[in-house]
Nucleic acid binder design. Structure first.
Length: 888
RNA sequence: GGGCGCGUAGCUCAGUUGGUUAGAGCGCGCGGUUCACAUCCGCGAGGUCAUAGGUUCGAGUCCUAUCGCGCCCACCA
């Protein structure tokens, strides 16, 4: 009867890695341990990222996974490098979007927001938020985001609202916020002004109508327009001052058809004589160009439109009609009057509301604006002097160009949801009050008839304060002092202007310092058909929880990070995620092997490191250094791939296979040394990989430590330091093991091509490479050759054999009775051709004096070596061919 | 109208500052059940790096032009 097996850590690791069973447990463990809160040790330099707050209107979709993966990677990485890492979570109220969602809900109940009233609507909003507000956080937890939940914020929180108030008042007091009647982009569906950025210019196949304006003095003047209904608001017709065709008409009056208003013919060099008829109708109330022209010529501004897009009383008999109906009706009238000269098809850009696709109306209205010009200049300076850096760098130019052409920012919205504009108007004296605290009486006249401005602020106004409002600004808090400026802003390039630019401008203006030093842009996630993953284009499978359930959070995160390049869009291919899952499982199984080795050799003193020990430790040190270099340069994908490739092919394949020889051999000291090496590399790899795949590495860490690994390290991997990379790299060991691997692969290839059964051991003779003799067991075991003998360079054998060349040696496999001589001759011919071609190329290059002169010495030396080796190969192959001549 | 990105193996994509014979996963072909792992292991096929010029000893990588796809900015009616 067998004695009872001693308990093993491996008992708890049976089977493949199962993400579902560990992820939620580990997340809670981290959270409860306090690991997500930044260390308050003053010696630890802070590292801060403010999360791009998702809109509370919905859930995270796969497009959000990139930001979670990258930011958590950076946060964990820096935490493990001893920084006081703070990742600030939170959500955004997304004014228009959210109001629309709630109004839609109300509509289903047969209600409108007006039925509830402003207060009732607000109540309804908070109620709604309670219901849906947590789903984003649930998703963040599932993804493993190590955010500091104790510092969570929402843009409509009291603290952030206070920040918004302070920001508004300060900018107002400084004269940077002002109110005025200007032309704005009006969305008739939202019935609100929107900013320039929210207007999407779409090419529309429309018409260019040529229309005759009767002249008071007889005759007519033809004008071309794409928007005939706006004629109702015309206050002039303009021609180019030097346009000879129209000289005689200057100063004359034309009549607006159907309205009867007499309008002057003016000269303005804005007009392009080549376009249309060379005469332009001027509608200062409904076109930005015309507004500018109207100002130059002191023309009256006539507004013909209501907020909902219907025409008002200024439109005469077309009043009350919707703008597009009015266009048709007015055209019909013009045609009937004989004033419609002709129509031509005309494609031109038309502004649409980016949210609801309604055609934007440029119209004059009273709104609040930020004069961003000075803020933009300060931002430009911050970028130019390197206080803010962009990754990838190309976004720097885009950013600067936008700032250069920036226009005043319209911040008032005619909505109910959002931060109410903190301005009161006195009904008695007309004073405009912009206070820090809600007023009860007018400070000017003492009157109490105060009315607050009904509008709310653009949601991006509060988002623009995010990196400091979340830290307690405007108060001088400990968090502000410690964590501002934040370190990295990581977000999608699609909100570079909406958000990044505003944070930079407002941070510099209000706090006096940049809000972050590095901006990293990730690309957008797309479906396989190329369409963007987004809330408005939500498709089955876009919920990250589905993918996490199928493959695990680590798989998803790792595949996203390694499949995407900075700033480039990625098509989400689930096969990539699957590969990530396989990798997690590979590490799991590899770790089981390491732990098994540790248990097997426990109690033995390790002997001297072997060649393969020195090799794998050196390679690990190289990869370690590269990973640090890559992450420091924001090359996350390359760091992840380097770790993946090292672990899968070098550590868990070649080294492990080599390790088995000594591990299962008779030499206890050698086995213990091997086990120690396995543990060392696993230890270091888990640390480096943890920011990429937090769950599986943490879970392995637990078992690894239970088996006695990393005894002096913290219990949780999340708290464990990543040390600096060791410079101990044995180049000679790397070269030699690489050659051994090449030899093994050469033999395997030859065996396979000759049809030798996989399990069979065959004889092998190595010609040259006597220095590999001490490691012959490596070749014997991994290539399944026995006996294996070494022979001096130049040795020839006459018997039938398959030959191969790899790792700088010639391999001779005397496969008696198995050798297909024809095949072998063909193979030799192929090899000869290849060797001669290589030789030819190298010689040609070396014969070029300019190459030898100008190329770096190392490159030339390499080429010489290449030529030498090729020449040797040619000679050897020829010898072998000669030996085969006599054979059947 | 201005600007930017992309085009690399059948598919999805990497490729740092120009330097041997351009990589990965999946898929494909052949072969493998022994003690970490079949979510695995071994061997292999598959690419004129969109096209045409240029710079260079040397170009997937830098420059110019062209074609195709996508995006951003923009007030010619």
């Amino acid at each position: 009867m067998k004695s009872q097996r001693s308990p093993s850590v491996l008992d708890a690791m049976a089977g493949p890695y199962d993400p579902a069973s560990v992820e939620s447990r580990l997340y809670d463990t981290w959270d409860e341990s306090g690991a997500f809160q930044p260390s308050d040790d003053p010696d630890r330099r802070p590292f801060t990222i403010a999360i791009p707050p998702p809109n509370i209107t919905g859930q995270l979709h796969n497009g959000h996974v990139l930001f979670v993966a990258y930011q958590d990677l950076m946060i964990r990485w820096q935490r493990m490098h001893g920084r006081a890492a703070l990742w600030l979570p939170g959500t955004d109220h997304a004014a228009i979007a959210t109001q629309n969602v709630i109004e839609r809900e109300l509509a289903n109940e047969g209600l409108s927001r007006h039925d509830l009233g402003r207060e009732g609507f607000e109540e309804r909003f908070w109620q709604w938020k309670d219901e849906v507000g947590d789903s984003i956080n649930v998703q963040l937890r599932r993804l493993g985001a190590s955010v500091d939940w104790t510092r969570e914020h929402f843009t409509l929180d009291e603290q952030l609202s206070r920040a918004v108030r302070e920001a508004f008042v300060r900018l107002y007091e400084k004269g940077l916020i002002y109110r005025g009647r200007y032309m704005v982009n009006w969305c008739p569906d939202d019935q609100s002004a929107i900013s320039d950025l929210e207007v999407e210019h779409i090419d529309v196949e429309g018409s260019l109508w040529h229309i005759r304006y009767p002249l008071v003095d007889g005759g007519h003047l033809t004008v071309a327009t794409t928007r005939p209904e706006t004629m109702l608001g015309d206050t002039a017709i303009a021609v180019h001052p030097e346009d000879e065709r129209y000289q005689s008409l200057l100063g004359q009056k034309a009549v607006v058809p159907g309205i009867g208003r007499k309008i002057p013919v003016i000269a303005d060099s804005f007009v392009d004589p080549e376009f249309g008829s060379g005469a332009v109708k001027v509608t200062p109330g409904h076109d930005p160009n015309d507004a500018a022209m109207g100002e130059r010529h002191d023309l009256p501004v006539i507004n013909i439109m209501n907020g909902d897009g219907s025409l008002n009383d200024n439109a005469g008999r077309w009043a009350g009609q919707d703008r597009f109906d009015a266009r048709a009706a007015y055209l019909e009238f013009l045609e009937a009057e004989g004033l419609l000269e002709r129509v031509e098809p005309h494609t031109h850009p038309v502004g649409h509301c980016s949210r609801d696709d309604a055609v934007i109306e440029p119209l004059v209205s009273e709104q609040w604006f930020v004069n961003v010009r000075p803020l933009a200049d300060a931002s430009t300076a911050a970028v130019n002097d390197g206080r803010i850096r962009f990754h990838p760098a190309r976004f720097k130019n885009e950013f600067l160009r936008w700032l250069d052409e920036i226009q005043p920012w319209c911040i008032s919205r005619q909505l109910w949801l959002g931060h109410r504009i903190p301005v009161w108007y006195c009904g008695s004296c007309g004073a405009v009050i912009v206070p820090r605290e809600d007023p009860t009486v007018c400070p000017t006249c003492g009157g109490s008839e105060l009315e607050q401005d009904p509008d709310v602020l653009d949601t991006w106004f509060s988002s623009g304060l995010w990196p400091f409002s979340t830290l307690g600004w405007p108060d001088d808090t400990a968090d502000m002092r410690r964590f501002y400026p934040t370190d990295v802003m990581e977000t999608g390039y699609d909100i570079i202007f909406f958000w990044v630019a505003r944070m930079v401008m407002l941070g510099l203006e209000l706090v006096g310092e940049v809000p972050f030093h590095d901006v990293y842009f990730h690309g957008l996630v797309r479906h396989l058909d190329g369409s963007k993953v987004s809330k408005t284009n939500y498709q089955p499978g876009d919920d990250p929880l589905e993918t996490i359930e199928a493959y695990g959070a680590d798989a998803m995160r790792f595949s996203f990070v390694t499949a995407a390049a900075p700033g480039n869009d990625m098509r989400l291919d689930l096969r990539q995620v699957e590969r990530g899952g396989h990798f997690a499982n590979k590490i799991w199984n590899g770790a089981k092997f390491v732990i098994g080795a540790m248990e097997r050799t426990a109690g033995s003193d390790p002997g001297q490191p072997s060649l393969v020990d020195r090799w794998i430790l050196s390679r690990f040190n190289q990869v370690h250094a590269q990973a640090i270099r890559d992450v420091d340069h924001f090359r996350f994908g390359e760091a992840g791939r380097a770790l993946h490739d090292f672990l899968w092919t070098e550590f868990f394949d070649w080294y492990v296979e080599a390790a088995k020889i000594r591990l299962y051999g008779d030499d206890a000291a050698a086995a213990a040394r091997t086990s120690a090496t396995l543990a060392t590399v696993l230890d270091g790899s888990l640390r480096l990989l943890h920011p990429f795949m937090p769950y599986v590495t943490e879970e392995i860490w637990r078992h690894f430590r239970a088996a006695g690994g990393a005894p002096d390290s913290p219990e949780l991997l999340i708290d464990t330091p990543i040390p600096a990379a060791s410079l101990d790299v044995d180049e000679d060991a790397i070269t030699r093991v690489r050659a051994l691997i090449d030899i093994v692969q050469g033999i395997r290839n030859a065996r396979h091509e000759s049809g030798v059964e996989a399990g069979r051991h065959i004889e092998a003779r190595v010609i040259g490479g006597a220095d590999h003799e001490p490691e012959s067991v490596f070749i014997r075991r991994l290539a399944r050759v026995d006996p294996l003998t070494f022979h001096p360079v130049g040795t020839t054998f006459d018997e039938p054999a398959v030959t191969a060349r790899a790792g700088g040696v010639e391999i001779f496999l005397p496969l008696a009775g198995m050798v297909d001589l024809t095949a072998e001759r063909e193979r030799l011919a192929r090899e000869l051709a290849e060797a001669e071609a290589t030789l030819g190329r190298a010689e040609q290059l070396l014969a070029n004096p300019r190459f030898v002169e100008r190329a770096p010495e190392a490159v030339v030396a390499k080429e010489r070596e290449r030529a030498r080796a090729a020449a040797e190969r040619v000679a050897q192959v020829k010898e072998r061919q000669a030996a085969l001549v006599g054979s059947p």
